[in-house]
């Protein structure tokens, strides 16, 4: 009797305990403080975080541009590093402020990159350039920041990558170009099933494209959830109790934060919000309502500094 054994495909990205400590003149600063993150193949992961959260350093470690002080990064099961040629053939990267070879035009850059990739799609490059109204005959050094980002995206999409890593890619874009840019990414995902890891501090951008959301702050991942689950699991419960509520309500583990004024409470909760609502509902109250949190509110919730200056865990 033969038995077929299904081997699960490795995730597109797997970061385990990834840490980066910079040393400068005897001083140490921890840019990334032990990141664990898995990006399933075929997903669009939005990595949200304020400036200085460690997003760029994390992505650079993933690509082998920066060496990890500890931990490991894997792409499609392969450990990344400075010599990961095979991995980089499958990864497209658009950095925050792309600096391409300034003397080369878009056409020349495409000619330079073409022989490096086994699946280079010149038509995809031209389509992307046309959609973003990108002049291909002008040297990259004379392009605006947004145009350079567009060129970097066209160069990243042309090899038909399995993983697209975008680090604040739309920073220099006007709203039209931003919209076109995000549409291109969504088209790419729909047509090729490629995985996208999009780092941004623009909540709307992430909300528009991501099906998974990770929030990073202070060098750590604070939250990772599918976008649809996120809405269901992150809520605000506003309640005016008739008397002091019992401690089991106030100490429920789903509570992230409590704002109180007399017997009026606003609980910000994360997890099984329905069960918490049931628990609160049995306590005598005047008003009880559960409010949805926007992604922006969730972002602030997870990245806001605590009164002592540290971040809420």
């Amino acid at each position: 009797m033969s038995r077929e054994v299904e081997v699960a495909a490795p995730p597109a990205v797997e970061l385990k305990g990834l840490r980066k400590v910079y040393r400068h003149r005897g001083r140490q600063s921890e840019a990334v403080a032990g990141v664990d993150l898995t990006v399933p193949a075929g997903s669009v992961m939005g990595l949200l975080g304020p400036n200085g959260a460690g997003k760029t350093t994390t992505l650079k470690m993933l690509l082998g541009l920066v060496h990890a002080s500890a931990g490991e990064a894997r792409v499609f099961g392969y450990r990344t590093g400075p010599d990961g040629v095979g991995i980089r053939q499958r990864v497209g990267y658009v950095p925050e402020n792309p600096v391409l070879y300034p003397s080369l035009s878009g056409k020349a850059l495409a000619s330079f990159c073409r022989p490096l990739y086994p699946r280079w799609d010149g038509e995809a490059f031209r389509r992307c350039a046309a959609a973003l109204k990108l002049p291909l005959d002008i040297p990259a050094g004379k392009l605006s920041r947004g145009q350079r980002a567009a060129l970097a995206l066209a160069l990243a999409l042309a090899p038909r990558p399995d993983l697209l890593v975008l680090d604040e890619p739309t920073a220099g874009f006007d709203p039209y170009a931003r919209r076109e840019f995000l549409s291109l990414i969504l088209d790419m995902v729909a047509s090729t099933g490629c995985t996208v890891l999009l780092s941004s501090h623009d909540v709307d951008e992430v909300q528009r494209v991501a099906d998974q959301v990770a929030i990073m702050a202070g060098g750590r991942i604070r939250l990772v959830k599918p976008a649809d689950e996120l809405r269901a699991s992150e809520k605000r419960v506003r309640v005016a109790f008739q008397a002091q509520p019992p401690p089991q309500v106030l100490e429920d583990p789903v509570i992230r934060r409590v704002e109180r004024e007399g017997n009026r409470y606003v609980f910000t909760v994360s997890g099984d919000t329905a069960a918490f609502l049931e628990k609160v509902a049995v306590v005598p109250h005047f008003v009880l309502e559960m409010l949805d949190l926007s992604l922006e509110e969730i972002f602030f919730e997870y990245t806001r500094p605590a009164p002592g200056g540290d971040l809420h865990a």
């Binding site: 690509l63 400075p82 980089r88 402020n97 391409l100």
Partner: peptide
């Protein structure tokens, strides 16, 4: 200094290359 090293190293080249 110009920043294009990041681009070069994100392409499929080993650093030794």
């Amino acid at each position: 200094a110009s920043g294009s090293m990041g681009f070069t190293l994100s392409l499929p080249f080993a650093r030794r290359q």
